[in-house]
């Protein structure tokens, strides 16, 4: 930790206000070049505490930067993690107001819902599958608060990994019934496939992202409680959206889920 508690609180307030007012900002490491990952997660935790203090609930967790290609590009070996507040949740087929966001993009993901606690270190794919109640298609709407998406990894972590909105829906699938490596995802914008891939694009297996999350939390003495919703990370690159766009995600064996931008 290189930043003072006061600085962390100040940056959390600043970044959260950027989110709430849909205003962008230069990346915060410009003014705080000595900020480290612990500081970044401390800022994210302070943003979470601010939301809880205002009466919001935390309804899920998320992994970001989960493709090997992206990690290589950013020079890291682990994904990053964030949380989802209750008001991020969009009902199946529901609307997202673009006026509340800066420059939203959508990512197709596999959502995990757990039925048993997951605690690292030592958490692995098998433990994740054993603790998974069901899987569903999930569309994550990301909205980096950083101007023109110019950021570094620490700034992204502090910004709650660009989390903004999400929808889950479709047909829940039991983990034993799905091959998560070869499960195909097709993201359609206004009826046309715009991004597609298979589960293996996420760290070779989407459950690996959940295991890494449990291990990261374990190092901090925390666990993932039973009943947690976790978005396991984008299977494809993020796709930009605008008002009027309708986005549907189809996942093999799991039906589809959709949302609209107004």
């Amino acid at each position: 930790m290189n930043l003072s508690k006061a600085t962390i609180e100040k940056l959390a307030e600043y970044l959260e206000n950027c989110e709430l007012n849909a205003e962008d900002t230069p990346k915060i490491t410009d003014e705080h070049p000595d900020m480290d990952f612990e500081d970044a997660y401390a800022i994210q935790d302070a943003i979470r505490a601010r939301k809880i203090a205002r009466g919001h609930r935390i309804v899920g967790l998320k992994a970001g930067l989960t493709s090997h290609a992206k990690m290589k590009q950013m020079g890291v070996t682990e994904p990053v993690f964030g949380f989802m507040a209750d008001y991020y949740s969009v009902p199946e087929g529901g609307e997202v107001k673009v006026s509340e966001l800066i420059h939203p993009k959508v990512e197709p993901e596999i959502a995990f819902v757990t039925k048993a606690p997951l605690k690292g270190p030592g958490c692995h794919i098998g433990a994740v599958l054993a603790a998974t109640d069901f899987l569903m298609p999930g569309i994550e709407v990301i909205d980096s608060r950083y101007r023109d998406f110019k950021f570094d990894l620490k700034s992204v972590v502090a910004d709650n990994t660009s989390a903004a909105r999400f929808v889950i829906g479709g047909k829940p699938a039991r983990p034993a019934d799905v091959d998560l490596r070869t499960v195909g995802v097709v993201l359609e914008k206004n009826g046309e496939p715009v991004a597609l891939g298979a589960g293996a694009a996420v760290l070779g297996h989407p459950a690996a992202a959940i295991a890494m999350l449990a291990n990261m939390l374990g190092r901090r003495g925390q666990e993932i409680p039973a009943g947690t919703l976790i978005l396991s990370g984008g299977v494809t690159e993020a796709v930009a959206v605008a008002a009027g766009d309708e986005v549907t995600l189809r996942v093999q064996g799991m039906g589809s889920t959709a949302l609209r931008f107004v």
């Binding site: 097709v186 597609l196 298979a198």
Partner: peptide, 11 residues
């Protein structure tokens, strides 16, 4: 042994 490409039928 490394994932090089993923895709889906809709391609």
């Amino acid at each position: 042994g490394e994932v090089a490409v993923t895709g889906a039928g809709a391609a």
